[in-house]
Amino acid sequence: MQCPIARALDRVGEWWSILILRDAFYGATRFDEFERNLGIAPNMLARRLKGLVEAGLFERRRYCERPPRYAYHLTPCGHDFRPVVVAMLAWGNRHFTPEGPSVRLVDRATGLDAEPVVVDRISGRPIDSAHFRYEAGPAATEATRRRIAALEAHMTSERGIP
């Protein structure tokens, strides 16, 4: 699909892949670390790591010759996924932890809980439907243009925006 969301999900849409990336943000790089931390079967972990390498989120680096062993390091593309994981953490804590959060994101200097939001880098405003809308890009197909126009018309009529 031409949709950037569908393309992103094609690379990381399986939940094990997202958990592997989460652990990489915590500092895990080695197969045995991922396996131990996640409790994932070795064959499944090997498939997921291979897919993440092929998708460009990790690169393999040999750290042992005999036997050959590899570490998995985040690429710039992989590092760019961190805000997605942070947003998922905040969303999960807000909606799916009736017993309270098991993981918190805190400010290193103050120890206070962080409250992640997605903001526009230029204006600093939160990315919400009151301030921003979707628009077809230069590579959009005619079907994508129609779908986005219909969604925008629906949003406009619901909000009473002229």
Score class of each variant (00 low, 15 high):
G124V: 02
G56D: 10
D113V: 04
R146A: 12
L57P: 00
A136R: 03
A143V: 04
A143W: 06
A139K: 10
R7I: 11
C3F: 09
W15S: 15
G92T: 12
D113C: 10
E65T: 13
K50E: 12
H154K: 07
H95I: 04
R159Q: 08
L151Y: 10
R147W: 05
R48C: 00
A109D: 14
Y70L: 01
Y26S: 00
C3P: 03
R36M: 00
R125I: 09
V86A: 02
G27D: 08
Y72M: 00
G160D: 13
N43P: 00
K50N: 10
P83Y: 12
D107V: 07
C64M: 06
E142F: 05
V85A: 09
V118C: 14
E54Y: 07
D107M: 09
A46W: 11
I161S: 09
S17H: 15
E35K: 01
N37Q: 08
R94K: 15
A6Y: 05
Y63S: 03
A130D: 12
E59H: 11
T144A: 06
P162M: 14
G100D: 10
R133I: 03
G51W: 07
E142D: 15
A8M: 15
E14Q: 11
V117I: 11
P68T: 01
Y134H: 08
L89I: 13
A114T: 10
R121A: 14
E142N: 11
M88Q: 14
L89F: 11
S17K: 14
I40R: 13
R61M: 03
S17Y: 11
F58I: 02
E14G: 04
E135T: 08
A153F: 01
A136P: 04
F31V: 12
G51F: 08
G100Q: 06
F34G: 00
M88H: 13
V103P: 07
T75L: 05
M155V: 04
I148P: 02
T29L: 00
R133E: 07
E59I: 04
A46I: 01
R145Y: 06
I148L: 14
F132G: 05
R60D: 00
E152F: 03
L38N: 00
F31R: 02
G13T: 14
R47N: 06
L74E: 01
M44W: 09
L9Q: 15
Q2A: 14
I40H: 11
T29S: 02
T156V: 05
